[in-house]
Computed example of a mutant assay.
Amino acid sequence: MAGRGRRSDAVANRDRIVEAARAELSRSNGAAADLKLHGVAKSAGVGQGTLYRHFPTREHLLAEVYRYELTQLVDAVAPLLAEHPPLRALTCWLQRLVEYARVKRGVMAAIEASAWRDVYVDQHHRLDEALGTLLDRGRAAGQVRDGVDAADVILLLGALSRIPEAEWGTRAQTIVTLVVDGLRPR
């Protein structure tokens, strides 16, 4: 049966497991260490054996949640640009990035450093490209200053990793506002 795709029910089970894990991480503010696999399986409507067939370890599941969140973030660029002026699209995208950063922070804390490096190296260029597209469109529209690239913005957003969990709700949005204000042309 080599060459055949996975069965549709297996794909649906895998998707439900990832969604259940993502929802649980969102409820727990990204605390991946608190993620209970039996609870994820129950929420997804699958048995533990099905969960472990798809994700042999917690790290495998968390890495897939990270990939899923990143894909959602990257895929949001085109619709945001179609719906909003470039600077507003960038602002909306950065607000989504805040939620991504919260999940990422929890995943980073729970995945071994070597496994995290593999996931990060394999996926991070997609984030840079998405942000680069938003910045390019903003510059072309005269809404984003020249001389700023995706790496600059990512470095600024590194401040998100230093926010205490209890202050996340207010401080994360303040950081996004400061970044957007700093991107405006002088």
Results as ranks from 00 to 15, higher is better:
44 A>S: 02
146 D>F: 08
79 P>K: 02
163 I>P: 02
146 D>E: 15
177 T>Y: 11
93 W>R: 01
59 E>N: 08
41 A>S: 14
147 G>E: 13
70 L>M: 13
62 L>D: 01
93 W>F: 05
142 G>E: 13
168 W>S: 00
71 T>Y: 04
95 Q>D: 12
8 S>W: 07
76 A>C: 10
102 R>L: 12
156 L>F: 07
44 A>Q: 02
101 A>G: 09
98 V>R: 15
184 R>Q: 09
36 K>L: 06
112 E>C: 00
105 R>G: 10
76 A>K: 08
12 A>K: 11
5 G>K: 08
39 G>M: 11
154 I>K: 11
82 A>L: 13
63 A>F: 04
110 A>M: 10
134 L>T: 10
92 C>F: 05
51 L>F: 09
51 L>C: 08
149 D>P: 08
85 P>L: 06
49 G>S: 15
6 R>T: 11
74 V>R: 09
6 R>P: 08
178 L>K: 12
29 N>K: 06
5 G>Y: 01
2 A>R: 12
95 Q>I: 06
62 L>E: 00
73 L>I: 09
2 A>H: 10
17 I>W: 01
135 L>M: 09
164 P>A: 13
71 T>W: 10
80 L>I: 04
75 D>C: 11
76 A>G: 09
20 A>P: 02
5 G>N: 10
115 A>M: 01
104 K>M: 11
47 G>A: 10
12 A>R: 14
174 T>S: 12
160 L>N: 07
92 C>V: 03
140 A>M: 12
154 I>E: 12
136 D>E: 14
137 R>H: 15
185 P>W: 03
143 Q>L: 13
86 P>D: 06
72 Q>P: 04
128 D>E: 15
47 G>S: 14
81 L>E: 07
14 R>E: 13
